[in-house]
Design a protein around this nucleic acid. Sequence first.
DNA 1: ATACTATTGATAATGATTGCCAATAAATAA
DNA 2: TTATTTATTGGCAATCATTATCAATAGTAT
Lengths: 129, 129
Amino acid sequence: MAIRRNTIQKQLIFDAVVGLNIHATAEQVYEYIAKENPSISKATVYRNLAQMAEAGELLNIGVFYGATHYDHNLHRHYHFVCSKCGSVFDIDGDFACTINKIKEDSQHQITDYNISFSGVCYKCKGLKS
Amino acid sequence: MAIRRNTIQKQLIFDAVVGLNIHATAEQVYEYIAKENPSISKATVYRNLAQMAEAGELLNIGVFYGATHYDHNLHRHYHFVCSKCGSVFDIDGDFACTINKIKEDSQHQITDYNISFSGVCYKCKGLKS
DNA sequence: ATACTATTGATAATGATTGCCAATAAATAA
DNA sequence: TTATTTATTGGCAATCATTATCAATAGTAT
């Protein structure tokens, strides 16, 4: 692809993901920015989030239902999604050894992997139904 | 929930997932069935796949872009998605020990987890661009 | 056979995301 | 600084995957 230009929109979008600090979705990023900059386009938010994830500046965390969530925390970690409230939390763990063995043994060219957990978060555990 | 009734649609849908044997999507299941039974509704396919996954009769494999894929292989295994052709392949591996430690240590009530790999599959590896 | 109600088919509606394109604005050259 | 080039934007239509709605249908228990 061609040269990537720096725009104020890009900066706003990146800052929003960092500022929100909640594994934000494109929609949440848009709302956050639109408060101060209502002229930003939702398409611009979607485009840039995807582009930044592609470039490795953000992480598209592999939550497998609903909207795509982005993370500014680039060190290897995993995610837990609450089935009641939908919140996403960080999970640490060391899978490196098993993953490496799988990579070596595989006939495919594995370049990435994603581990996510689901269940009921500590906040929702106490609530009835 | 109420009693689940047995219908010919349910059977057709389950058989389609088994028969296709390709980690099929709802759309693929629909197409497969509609060849012989064009009167089946797409909504019925979506509803039943979700219900069977909920009931543990099928597995909703956590591929995190595009449509939901279903698997009739219920033993614990993982998936690899090719970024070029989108095919889904099975991956084996033993994460039980690490997962158990994470479950024990977590403040959340972890009931499920999903591990998926991505990259270029053995078929697409040789192809240019 | 009858009654009850889960399930279906058809389609509208929704939510997430992408495609399109003319207007705008970075980056670089002159 | 100005001109040139073209990546990027904003606005909106379109698409894709999925869910909601609801009257009609068909399992299941009696």
